[in-house]
Amino acid sequence: MTAVIAEEDINRIRWHCRRGMLELDMVLARFLEEHADRLTAPQWQEFERLVSLEDHALWQRITATSVTDSTVERLLRGCIIC
């Protein structure tokens, strides 16, 4: 079941996705474009927690090669353009 998220909340989240690191800007923008309409409420909460991390820490999380149970992290990794 996907969550219905208000447009103002999506705009707030998009603003938080603007980063000082171009690679993160690209990955986060692609993630929102491809997955925003299918995320569940818990996945939105997880995404917001991840976006609250500093650039370097977030980049390390989404480029890690370790296996994770996090659907959001796996989706973010899928948005990395090689």
Rank of each mutant, 00 (worst) to 15 (best):
E48Y: 01
W44E: 04
A3Y: 04
L39Y: 01
V27S: 01
R61M: 03
A41W: 05
A3P: 10
H56Q: 11
F47V: 07
H56E: 13
R19C: 09
V27P: 03
T40N: 13
E7D: 13
A64P: 08
E33Q: 12
I62V: 13
T2G: 02
I81H: 03
M1F: 01
L58D: 08
F31R: 00
S66Q: 08
E46A: 11
L76E: 04
Q43P: 00
R49D: 11
T65Q: 10
T68H: 04
E34K: 02
S70F: 02
Q43G: 01
V67C: 05
V72M: 12
A36F: 02
H16Q: 10
V27Q: 07
E7I: 06
H35F: 06
D37P: 02
I13S: 08
I10M: 15
R77P: 02
W15H: 14
R38D: 09
W15F: 13
L58S: 06
C17P: 03
E48T: 00
R77A: 05
D37C: 08
L24W: 01
R30I: 07
R19S: 13
T68N: 11
G20L: 11
C79V: 01
D69L: 08
D55L: 02
E23N: 01
Q60D: 15
M21V: 15
H16M: 09
T40E: 15
L22Q: 14
E48D: 05
E48N: 05
L53F: 12
I80Y: 10
E23H: 02
M26V: 13
E33M: 06
E73V: 15
L75V: 01
L32Q: 04
M21I: 15
E73C: 09
M26W: 08
H35Q: 06
T40H: 06
A57K: 09
I5E: 11
W59V: 00
H16D: 10
R77E: 01
M26D: 12
E54N: 11
T63N: 12
L58V: 04
L39V: 00
S70E: 11
W15C: 02
A36Q: 07
C82P: 14
D55E: 08
R18V: 13
E33N: 06
L50T: 08
T40L: 08
L53S: 10
F31C: 04
I10L: 15
V27W: 09
D37S: 14
D25I: 04
R18I: 07
L28C: 05
E7K: 00
E34P: 00
D9Q: 05
R49A: 14
